[in-house]
Design a protein around this nucleic acid. Structure first.
Lengths: 336, 336
DNA sequence: CTGAAAGCGCTTACAG
DNA sequence: CTGAAAGCGCTTACAG
């Protein structure tokens, strides 16, 4: 690493103080009334020396880094991958940079990440909170660092959040299946105390019971840590039971993809033998021999709203709390 | 944003100088022989005050940020998405953070990104270079900032790089098709001066001509900017021509997926009517009714080697140049 | 219109 | 074993 060009080098070359150079470089000449010709010489020198400001020094002085910390729940999940992309792109429009970490749904890892980002003085957080991370979020709030939760939130905490209307998502999906003549509809979800999962389950329950199908309710809850093997055994047991399942709704895309893998392997005909509704979408849903009907989240909007909310918080220091709940879309194809 | 706890606060509370606190916090007590009980009191105070070191200040002082700048070519491409994940995970093992940007194959955007990262004083770069970015890479090298290229490189530049053996990848794929009895094999690629694409094309050409099929060579080159529409028209023209194409090799995963979309829509039976070899893999290849044979890149290895090489460069200041060329794997399924 | 100086929060020789 | 002090590269009142 070679010694880099600093303000001082430019100042020396032009024969002025670093203050002048700083004014010109940061575009404040107008206010400070730096003479046009001095400004010109400074700009020229900066170009000649290929000056690049040291953002670290500026950050230390100004107390702001133009950096956002993004903690997602699972980097292996394409849904979050896409979300990262949107957020990154969007942040760039505001001249912010994003540093990303995956908690892998583990609260210890989450804490490590949040601390590392905090040490790096991020100006704000966007977090997809894992289970048992309430205290971590509380700590951030207490330090008055702007934070917005995404995809999930805690009822106990009055935070900004952007989430899907998860209840509506599964309520509508279930109803759609029922209207299409399916009755014995199973629901595969993760066992979780997190509100998004509970809401998805509630949507399914409500739709079933409101349709007089309470006795057909069949909720399968898997642990996130379960392997594809356990997953397939469970699915196998479900499908070979005497309950005669005629449809399955998967509560997120990891479950959907795992499910499709199994059904594909077993050569179970969709929708003839079994109807399917997936979650979150993706190329595989489109390219499946029988394109999959699924709940589509407005990822673009989620990301944009998250950044917009965070920027409001950072810039206006606004003290309102935003709860933004976005509508799901049921994309209807051939799988049911 | 609330005033944060600093070394000074701890020093004041314990009644020592900030130097002592710094030694203890950064784990240097042994060397500096801070008395055990003072060290203990400092640690306790740090914990009581929930002290988090200010990494920005440390970076400014030490001249290192423990941050890596990662510039990929296209954030929408799942291949790069996965690569980001691997690199991020791997960097974390070394206690480094990654900031990511996508050049979208545009050299202007690439320059903007590299400058922004440079201003943020990244300790090193990992770059998937876009076309016409030689000067940008040269600039980095000249500033003695560690950099390793990934996926592609420039023949004109003596840089560190990690790439697939692209020639072998398509040479073997083409040969595999030929051995399976296919003759009229088309190759869909992007028009590009970049070495990875040219190597993939060369592999195809060589395999065809070595097999006496020179007259069957059929290279389709698309611009990266081409829409799915143009893509489909081209594919349509190709398949309805009197050349009787019996197989297509796609030169990367974007082309593969676009191709599958088209073939799926047109109900072209694979492999009966047309054999297919894809590139890079993914769930859609697995879940396609006729699972797709494809060239698999060792993404995990690419990412790990990139980080390892960069860490060597940063830490040992090693002045050797690494050219790492990894082997492709042809994953054989049912599409040909 | 311009400059001297303080200070952001650290680390690290140096002196004792 | 401990402290005073310089300095990383900026920005920004303040004074002229």
């Amino acid at each position: 690493m070679i010694k880099q060009v600093s303000l001082k080098d430019i100042a020396k070359k032009v024969g002025v103080s670093t203050a002048l150079v700083s004014y010109v470089i940061s575009g404040k000449e107008k206010d400070k009334k730096v003479s046009a010709k001095v400004a010109q010489r400074i700009r020229q020198a900066a170009k000649d020396l290929k000056y690049q400001p040291n953002a670290i020094a500026r950050s230390l002085r100004k107390g702001t880094t133009k950096t956002i910390g993004l903690v997602i729940a699972d980097i292996a999940n394409p849904f979050f991958g896409q979300l990262c992309r949107v957020i990154e792109d969007e942040a760039q429009n505001y001249d912010y940079v994003v540093i990303i970490g995956s908690s892998d749904e583990d609260h210890n890892k989450s804490e490590l990440l949040i601390n590392a980002m905090h040490q790096r003085q991020v100006d704000g957080f966007i977090i997809v909170p894992a289970e048992n991370t309430i205290e971590q979020i509380q700590d951030i709030i207490q330090k008055k660092i702007p934070v917005v939760l995404v995809d999930r939130y805690f009822n106990e905490l009055n935070t900004n959040y952007i989430v899907l209307d998860n209840y509506k998502a599964t309520f509508n999906s279930t109803l759609y299946l029922i209207k299409s003549g399916y009755k014995s509809i199973a629901f595969m979800a993760y066992k979780s105390s997190l509100v998004h999962m509970m809401e998805r389950i509630r949507g399914y329950f409500e739709a079933m019971s409101q349709s007089g199908l309470t006795d057909k309710i069949n909720l399968i809850e898997l642990k996130i840590s379960n392997t594809q093997n356990i997953f397939e055994n469970t699915l196998n047991k479900l499908l070979t039971s005497d309950k005669k399942i005629d449809a399955i709704i998967f509560a997120n895309n990891m479950l959907s993809i795992a499910g499709l893998h199994y059904l594909h392997k077993q050569n179970i005909r969709i929708p003839e033998e079994l109807a399917i509704i997936g979650f979150d979408g993706g190329d595989c849903f489109d390219l499946f021999y029988s394109p999959i009907t699924y709940v589509k989240q407005p990822i673009e909007d989620i990301g944009k709203e998250a950044i917009r909310t965070l920027m409001d918080l950072i810039h206006d220091g606004s003290n309102k709390t935003s709860h933004i709940i976005l509508n799901p879309e049921l994309v209807i194809r051939n799988s049911c």
